[in-house]
Design a protein around this nucleic acid. Structure first.
Lengths: 190, 190, 190, 190
DNA sequence: AATGAATGAGCCTTCATTCAT
DNA sequence: TATGAATGAAGGCTCATTCAT
């Protein structure tokens, strides 16, 4: 049953299975075999498409960040005022795609493990830089005061996301999004 | 070299070694043997004082939360105004004891793994409830508006903590503490 | 050197290696690693074919009992008189296949450990029921007197087997078989 | 609370705890710590009174065989006819002291493990020799025919004992004793 | 392209034994 | 005499990775 041109398809399958497995079993119990089974393929195939397990985890985080980036850009394109740009950034983070239980679980797990994984660390830094840059832009430029605000808003977003990942308050996306926007506006103000 | 009455001492040693090991090697590479060696004891002794590895991880988290609780209570005792009480809570979280690289690393790692560890999940919920309760109190009572504020401030604290854990901006405790206080005040205001 | 369709072959190899290892080292010193090495495979593969060590031990006992059952049925098929049927049962127990040093050693060891192993206990009960049933049939029906006789003959068989397993008298199969038949005939008579 | 002259007492305590532990947990799960706890002493004390664990197991078997020997001698002393002597031997094996669940369990477990334990092997050979000698005596002397009979009766005793150890037929001591006597008489006859 | 058998390193855990007290 | 803290060697088991097919 070998097929040609399966590369991209298999890669996506495996990345999705990885995210899903992290959500279901936790990162510690996410084994290559389990991922493969969940993707409906054999364990061996994983190393055909990915260098090793770390590479697969890395690509999973990358897919999530790529997806977030697209979401942000899409919304920024339609934003004209500062306030709109700020909301665009926040709403992107809490959009359905970025905020499914699977994605938040995987995000938290990989985020936490990034300290000891150079690859993950690197792309998460990129994400943070981009987020800060976007926020500074939405706040009206890079100055000490705005740096503080950007830092706080970024922390607010991550914090809300983080707490949602633990399902600590059975969080409703819609509601959380509104809270994030409202509070960010406060932080952005004087 | 067996000695009597070493129980509490050994337990503390092992918990500290665990926190330190998580920081140095990451949770995934924190093995019982490594913890024991780091504590200067043999691998076998770990199971003399803890049921199993999970128990040791649990107790490590517990020690951190207990320490935080003490810090908060100590500061709340000397706080009279609402603003002081709010600051007390925040400053406790960013006090030297709670905010060493070792502790933040361990906190993040265990926080992330709590979704699939009933014990960790439970005590983290307790922490969150207590934090919310303290914040509501500092904000002047439990009402819908304050609930939102408390949620946001809690997220801000966790978010700043989280980002510091990744050392993303080589954060300076002092500075972060001030930022947290300032921004929380904004969130608390109208 | 992975090959396809090796399942049944490997399972048989491992079961035989288990029986042999129990004979050579004793059940207490029969480790998974030792079994694997004796079968010429790696330790890890054992858990590819068996749930765990207990499962492997269970399957080893099962193979011995299955083999005995086949031997008994084969001989009963050619038996017409009561006396012949009684001899058939006994001779099967002391046939070369059932009575090698390896098999008797393993049989004794697993028999003894069955008290604390539900799986082993179950299949040994099946064996005992079948033996009793066969004996009652050979004795001419289920009545109190025959029950006593069956019990005694079964005990005689087990006892002789047991003592042979300890090699207490450097027992010769042929001779033992004859003794068992002769004495069983006595027990069967009035 | 060190006391002098505790030697014999402690040794008996530990041997009894060993037998009891084998019955309750099985030989494989009978650990030194468990034995000690069951005897109400500390794990370390075991090696004060016994060379090592094997020594303790050996002494446990020895106590059981010693007890059996005493029981046999006591009954033989009052036996005058051949038939009485035969019954004396059998009844001793199934007397309350020898036939408690604890003792039968321990007996079976140690019996089975004796193949790979020189010490156990030795004293069990002694037991077998004594049993054979007693039986030959009761049968009227050492000749080929009586050797066969003695062998069969010994096997019958061990077999019945063995099956009782597994509790395969919820055996009642009284009844089993009678069965053993009746069937032995058959085997002893011509 | 795909399978899954096979490896082997390493982890958690247990436990007989020793030893300071 | 007695404790129980401590060691260290093994054992069962898991799992990322490789490789013949």
């Amino acid at each position: 049953m070998p097929k040609v041109g399966m590369g991209p398809v298999r890669r996506k399958q495996l990345v999705d299975a990885t995210i899903s497995s992290i959500h279901t079993y936790g990162l510690a119990d996410t084994t290559v075999t389990r991922i493969a089974r969940s993707a409906g393929v054999s364990p061996g195939i994983v190393h055909h498409y990915f260098t090793d397990k770390d590479d697969l985890l890395f690509e999973s985080m990358r897919q999530m960040l790529r997806s977030l980036k697209i979401e942000v850009l899409k919304r920024l394109k339609n934003s004209n005022t500062k306030a709109e740009r700020l909301n665009a950034i926040i709403e992107a983070s809490f959009s359905p795609e970025q905020f499914s239980p699977e994605v938040t679980s995987a995000w938290l797990a990989l985020y936490a493990s990034s300290r000891h994984s150079p690859g993950l660390f690197r792309i998460l830094q990129l994400y943070h830089r981009r987020l800060r840059s976007n926020l500074l832009d939405a706040l009206g430029g890079n100055n000490p005061q705005n740096l503080d605000k950007a830092e706080a808003i970024a922390a607010l977003i991550d914090g809300l996301y983080l707490r949602a990942a633990l399902n600590l308050d059975d969080s409703d996306m819609q509601q959380l999004q509104q809270l994030a926007c409202k509070m960010s506006a406060k932080l952005a103000g004087n």
